[in-house]
Design a protein around this nucleic acid. Structure first.
Lengths: 119, 119
DNA sequence: CTTGAATCTGACACTGATGTCAGGTTCTAG
DNA sequence: CTAGAACCTGACATCAGTGTCAGATTCAAG
């Protein structure tokens, strides 16, 4: 599929999809004329990438991580090096702390919303 | 207490504390010479502010929210306007979705880490 | 009083994903 | 063949919190 359709189906802008390619996150075949041509699996991959961005990972980290993930199409997945495992564990712990923060903030908001509703 | 101590006790840089003041998040009394003088409750407040920043709220939103929060010192808390409640509810829902994303990303990382550990 | 640590203001830089625009090329339906 | 939609590259802008530096002032201990 082409970039417009991929953008529509994922809700990610064409600009971002091109950026992902420059960062090595989303390789794209090319038509003879130079237009990007994505496989069906790109939809899932873009959604994964977006999730990881939302989790605060940077593109270079995602680029290291993606080859180690089992794709839905069941491609061969690499194994993380010890160094990468160490980094990913740190990310994991950071995300854990972030989730805890978010839950506290959500509770804070709920408290204020509820207090206003009771009036 | 002064800014250096507050920074040390909260882990937030002096630069950020001054920024919070300009944004109306953290009022500070002044010594005769112009140095900031914070009350003890500032420690908790800074931590709250950091949590809210981590949750993706912007400083203007936090500025609206803070007066409506019950402080630990039990000061009088304002009540959110309907417009603000609407905005905060949107923030709350966004945070909910973000938490779901984070959990998925954490699971992804755990999968890769575990796969490497099994080798 | 002196001295060194702490603080002040103001300004500029940075980050990194994304928005946007310009000017040109490719694709596809009629 | 042709018109219009879709796509290409490259460049510059944005956001908002934070880092950092310079030069001046204040504070506190000897």
């Amino acid at each position: 599929m082409r970039i417009g359709e991929l953008a529509r189906r994922t809700g990610v802008s064409e600009r971002s999809l091109r950026y992902y390619e420059t960062q090595g996150l989303l390789p794209a075949a090319r038509t003879p004329g130079g237009h990007r041509d994505y496989p069906e699996a790109a939809v899932d991959r873009v959604i994964r990438i977006q999730e990881l961005f939302a989790a605060g990972l940077h593109s270079n980290r995602i680029a290291q991580l993606l080859p180690c993930m089992r794709d839905t199409d069941g491609g061969p997945s690499a194994v993380a090096t010890p160094r990468l495992v160490e980094d990913l564990t740190a990310e994991r712990d950071r995300i854990d702390r972030l989730i805890a923060d978010l839950v506290r903030s959500r509770d804070t908001l709920d408290g204020v919303i509820e207090a206003a509703r009771e009036r």
